[in-house]
Amino acid sequence: MFAGNPGVLAVALWTLATGLFVSDRWHAFIKRRGWGQRGIDWRLMAASAFVLAPVTVAAISPSFHIFMQPITNFRWLLPALASWTGNFVVWNLLYTMALSLRRANRFEAETLRLELHAKDIELRALQAQVNPHFFFNSLNSVRALIYEDREAAARMIDQLAGLMRYALQSGHADTVPLAAEMEAVEAYLAIEKIRFEERLRVQVDIEPGLERVMIPPMSLQTLVENAVKYGVELSTAGSDIRIRAWRGEGATLIEIANAGALRRIGDSTQLGLANARKRLELAVGGGASLALAEHDGWVRATLRLPGGP
């Protein structure tokens, strides 16, 4: 069609260039004014009918006169105005929809950012609750030991200093490797070993390759502390503390076990376990869990972590 009538091609190109130019200038104008930011704006629709369409038709009309034939009547004017009004109404609707989608995406991203920030604050607050409780108990142990064995008390203070360093450093992270947490646990058990001597017996069985599993800092230490408190401290004969880690089906399992009865667990420990469960959920995700159960005279706290190292 264009090859047989160059005038039609010239008019089409003129029309295309005019439409793009008017749309570009209109876009710049409404962007400066902030129109359409809150949804459908009547000013956009009114401008389509009373400004944009007449301006575009007026700009295109000379092309017919120049490249095709002189304009002798104006019967085409109303259909042209209606057509361009429809074009610009659709353009403004699509533009408004695009702004709404962009605004919704920004709002969703900001909401997600605030949720992550709130999660981080909550996690830090929960971790901050663990450390003072732990150090309070440790200082009580040091105080009791000073009157019995000063050298042992000095060794305990050295171990406690190492634990404090770990707690301060790990407090800035959501998770730490199991190997780092076990170092802190072993330091804690060394402190309690000075205090309880033969009453505290520890067995550790970590399956090779699990050292890199990420867990919330001080989480195992909290469970081991409970095992010592309710398994060793309450028994004149003491208790074994068994720490195991192994691969299950699609998960890593870590178990802290002590001889005793679940009925002895007090309110403070229940709060500690609730804290540990919440920290586990925030740091690792909903697929993680912490279960406490009694079986065959043993109380077992079991961490279940999705995936593996």
Rank of each mutant, 00 (worst) to 15 (best):
I256A: 13
A180R: 12
L114G: 05
F64S: 02
R25A: 04
V228H: 12
W84M: 11
F50C: 07
R143A: 07
G286H: 11
E122W: 06
L200G: 06
L116S: 14
D205Q: 09
L77A: 01
G162D: 08
G34D: 05
P217E: 05
Q270T: 11
E115V: 07
T222D: 03
N87D: 03
S63A: 15
A245W: 02
S141I: 13
V204M: 05
A104D: 10
I71M: 05
P54D: 03
R263E: 15
L305G: 02
S289I: 00
I241K: 14
S141Y: 09
M1R: 06
S23G: 03
Q159M: 13
A10Y: 08
N131I: 13
S63H: 00
T111W: 14
L101A: 06
E207Q: 15
T175D: 02
M97T: 12
G297E: 08
A237D: 15
L282F: 06
A118F: 14
G171F: 11
A259W: 15
R304L: 07
I265G: 09
L273V: 12
V8R: 07
A187L: 13
W35C: 00
A153P: 12
A293W: 10
A293K: 13
R242L: 15
F134P: 03
S23A: 12
L282R: 05
L290G: 08
R277F: 08
L20T: 05
F2N: 02
T85I: 02
G287L: 01
L189K: 02
I241N: 15
A10Q: 04
K31L: 13
I121Q: 12
L77M: 04
A245N: 01
D41L: 03
V57W: 04
K278W: 03
V8Q: 02
L253V: 14
M164E: 10
V202L: 14
Y147M: 11
F67R: 05
D24C: 08
W14L: 02
M214S: 14
L163S: 07
N87K: 07
R244M: 13
L145Q: 07
T302Q: 11
D240V: 07
M214Y: 15
P6H: 01
I40F: 14
L94Q: 05
R25D: 03
Q270K: 15
V202G: 11
Q69R: 15
L305W: 08
H172K: 10
F88D: 02
V89S: 06
H65D: 14
A187F: 09
S239H: 03
I241V: 12
G36R: 00
N275R: 06
G19K: 09
E281M: 07
V213Q: 13
S100C: 10
I256S: 11
D240Y: 15
V185W: 01
L305P: 00
V130A: 00
L271P: 01
F2H: 04
P306C: 04
A46W: 13
A10L: 12
F29Q: 06
S170G: 10
P216R: 07
S235L: 11
A59F: 13
R38V: 06
T252E: 06
L189Y: 01
N92T: 03
Y95M: 11
L160D: 04
W84Q: 11
R279L: 02
L44S: 00
A227Y: 14
T15H: 02
G272W: 00
Q129F: 02
V89F: 14
A245M: 04
V8W: 08
G171Y: 05
I146K: 01
A187S: 09
A17C: 06
R32K: 14
I40T: 07
A184L: 01
E192C: 00
